[in-house]
């Protein structure tokens, strides 16, 4: 039986900043439709660059795709502009600055452009009601100016805004930043519920490895601009190096090693494969 075409396929991608600095090299990954795929890696591994490449936000950072391709729903989206990728159904929940601070929650939600014709006003309203069901906190704080929301509420609002773009593929960048574990757990739960109800495909990028491994169907590990390991969560959890460097679960009582130690260690022990 042939496997159905994946929703997103990144093939041998290379991204260069300022025509000089190669940020990611030879990156290939596959996101099947309806799946939750995670990408973990420390700061600077190239995760955000990957998301920027997919959503079309490279030119603003003076970066280009210098090799490889990104195929979405069967067609290449390399070099498309942000509003074009949004109309194709790719919504990015960005890393910092996720909401409009001077607008109220309602106004924030009104800004997001619904993909589809204007006759879709009904379905847009339906999703809005659904969003208020998923995030009752937002419903409570409808008229509050977003600048006064807490970090967790802002993240919820950011996800809600992205959902109002009626996406088929949701790209989530560093959702866990600045959030307390319980708040994050709540968000994970919401994300799972949304996925089930909407049949949404999610590409989740985060440096909080344990969360990603916990909720993903499949994970990629990025280092220094390349993918070094991938597999379903069980495989990652079983891998000694992942346990030690990303999850801090080592048999010695030391916890996560420093990056420098990791580099030296890696030189001694071949990591790839």
């Amino acid at each position: 039986m042939s496997t159905p075409q994946p929703l997103l396929r990144v093939h041998n991608l290379e991204v260069t900043y300022h025509r000089k600095l190669v940020a990611i090299r030879n990156v290939s990954l596959v996101v099947p439709a309806g799946a939750m795929v995670g990408v973990i890696g420390i700061n600077g591994a190239g995760k955000t660059t990957l998301l920027r490449a997919i959503s079309g936000f490279l030119p603003g950072e003076d970066a280009q795709i210098t090799e490889g391709d990104i195929v979405y729903q069967g067609r290449s989206i390399k070099g498309l502009q942000p509003h074009e990728t949004t109309s194709l159904g790719i919504a990015l929940v960005p890393e910092r600055d996720k909401v409009f601070l001077t607008l109220t929650v309602e106004e924030n939600l009104a800004v997001a452009r619904w993909r589809g014709g204007s006759s879709d006003g009904k379905s847009q309203r339906r999703v809005l009601e659904q969003i208020f069901e998923w995030f009752p906190l937002l419903a409570e704080r409808r008229r509050q100016v977003a600048g006064y929301l807490s970090g967790g509420e802002r993240q919820m609002l950011a996800i809600a805004m992205a959902l109002l773009n009626n996406p088929s593929l949701l790209l989530v960048d560093e959702m866990s930043l600045g959030l307390a574990p319980s708040v994050l757990a709540h968000l994970e739960d919401r994300l799972r519920a949304i996925r089930e109800e909407m049949g949404l495909t999610v590409l989740l990028v985060d440096q909080f490895a344990s969360m990603v491994i916990r909720i993903s169907d499949y994970c990629y590990v990025m280092e220094n601009g390349g993918i070094v390991f991938d597999g379903p969560p069980e495989r990652l959890l079983a891998h000694e190096d992942v346990r030690e460097f990303y999850l801090g679960m080592s048999d010695s009582a030391q916890g996560v090693k420093s990056y420098r130690e990791v580099k030296q260690y890696r030189r001694r022990r071949r990591w790839y494969g």
């Binding site: 959503s55 603003g60 949004t86 919504a91 600055d97 409009f100 607008l103 997001a112």
Partner: peptide, 10 residues
């Protein structure tokens, strides 16, 4: 207020 975020939201 935030051009980049606005264009991310379509």
């Amino acid at each position: 207020e935030h051009p980049v975020l606005a264009s991310q939201r379509g």
